[in-house]
Structure formats: C-alpha cells, structure tokens
C-alpha cells in the first residue's frame, strides 16, 4: 500500500535545533534592507569559518530597526560563540557593534 505523504510530521523537540537570539546595535548608516544585512552577516561568517559551519549556524535576520540601528538575529545555539566571534571582523561594514542581549526566546529580548 502506497501512502501519499502531504505533510511532514512535527519534528520532536529532541531533534529540533536549539536557537539563540542575539540583539545588537551598530553605528554605521549604510544598510537599506534586511536582506542586505543578511548578506553581510552570512558572507562574513562564511569567510571566517567556511561554508559548512555557515550552513550549520543557520543565521537568520529576525528584525531590523534602521532608525535605531538595532538587529535581532537568530543563530543555532551551538554556533553562537562562532557567530559572536565573526562580528569582530565587521567593523568596516557596521562600525561599533554593541551586543545588547542574547536569549533563548524573542520575548525575553523585549
């Protein structure tokens, strides 16, 4: 009997990737949209740590406030240190970066 699967099963909690949300601000006024920032963060991480770690880290821009120049980025928990370390190399693109908070949920950030 062939079963046509139309929907994926819910992934059980133990198999889900644990995430961390990083809230940081930057000083340079160069960005125009979230996709531009995502490209900058992704390319920088790839340059520092390589393609495989970039894929595993799964960097996503959740929220971007261009007026206040604040961003919330989601990263895989196990690669949080590498992500923070990669921000070290973004002085030219983003200026002074200040990490405001790192938490496991978006609610705790706000």
């Amino acid at each position: 009997m062939v079963v046509n699967k139309k929907k994926l099963n819910v992934i059980r909690p133990t198999l889900r990737h644990k995430k961390r949300y990083v809230h940081f601000s930057f000083s340079k006024e160069i960005l125009s949209d979230p996709y531009n920032l995502f490209t900058i963060l992704n390319n920088n991480f790839q340059k520092v740590f390589g393609v495989f770690l970039t894929a595993k880290a799964n960097i996503t821009v959740i929220d971007l406030d261009l007026e206040k120049r604040e961003v919330i980025v989601r990263v895989n928990k196990f690669y949080l240190n590498q992500f923070l370390g990669s921000l070290f190399f973004l002085k030219k693109e983003l200026g002074l970066i200040v990490i405001k908070k790192v938490s496991s949920t978006i609610k705790k950030l706000k």
Binding site: N81, F83, G85, I99
Partner: peptide
Amino acid sequence: YEELVDINILKSFLIN
C-alpha cells in the same frame, strides 16, 4: 569609536 570592541565579541573571538 569604531576601533572599540564589545567584550562578548572579544571573548568569542579569543576562543578561536
């Protein structure tokens, strides 16, 4: 100012 580094970023950088 642009040469300053956040302490959390510096710590994560030094782990490497």
